[in-house]
Amino acid sequence: MDFYLYILYSPKFDKFYIGYSADPWIRLEQHNSGTFHKFTSSYRPWELAAVFKIGRDRSLAMKMEKFIKKQKSRSLLEKLIDVNFVPEGFLAQLLRVPHVRD
C-alpha cells in the first residue's frame, strides 16, 4: 500500500492542514464530515491543495508530516502547493501527484 502526504486548505477560514494517508481523497471526505478530528472539524469545508506520493514506507510519511508541521511555516505550505515549486533537501523526495478525481 502506498502512502501520501496531503495538504488541505480551508478557503472560508484561510487555514492549512497537513496529514498523511493511504487514500487522501477518502481522508478529505472524513475531514469534511466526521467529528473525530478537533482541528479540522472547526474549519470546514476543506479542499485538497496538494498531494504527494511517499511510497510504501509509512514511517517516512510520518516523518515528512512531522518535519513540515515542525517548521510552523505557512510560507512553506504555500510553496508546496505551488505546482512550480521544486522541493529541496529532505523534502526533495516528495513526488507531486494529480489530485483531481472525476
Rank of each mutant, 00 (worst) to 15 (best):
M1R: 14
F3A: 00
Y4I: 03
Y4T: 05
L5E: 02
I7D: 00
I7H: 00
Y9G: 07
S10C: 00
P11C: 02
K12M: 09
F13E: 02
F13V: 05
D14L: 05
D14Y: 05
F16V: 04
Y17T: 01
Y17K: 06
I18H: 10
I18F: 12
Y20Q: 08
P24H: 08
W25F: 15
W25H: 11
I26F: 15
I26D: 15
R27G: 12
R27H: 02
L28A: 08
E29R: 15
Q30C: 11
Q30A: 14
Q30G: 08
S33C: 14
S33F: 05
S33D: 04
S33W: 10
G34A: 10
F36V: 11
T40G: 00
T40E: 03
T40N: 03
S42Y: 01
Y43P: 09
Y43R: 06
R44I: 05
E47D: 07
L48T: 05
L48Y: 02
A49Q: 02
V51F: 14
G55N: 07
R56M: 12
R56A: 14
R56C: 14
D57Q: 06
R58C: 06
S59P: 12
S59H: 09
L60Y: 15
L60M: 11
M64N: 02
M64L: 07
E65I: 03
E65M: 00
E65F: 02
K66L: 15
K66C: 12
F67V: 12
F67E: 12
K69F: 05
Q71L: 07
S73G: 13
S73M: 03
S75N: 09
L77M: 15
L80T: 06
I81A: 06
D82F: 08
D82W: 07
V83Y: 04
V83R: 02
N84Y: 14
N84P: 15
F85M: 03
F85Y: 01
V86I: 15
P87A: 02
P87M: 04
P87D: 09
P87N: 08
P87W: 11
E88Y: 07
E88C: 14
E88L: 14
A92T: 11
Q93D: 14
L95T: 09
L95W: 11
R96L: 10
V97P: 10
V97R: 12
P98S: 11
P98F: 06
H99V: 08
H99P: 07
R101Y: 13
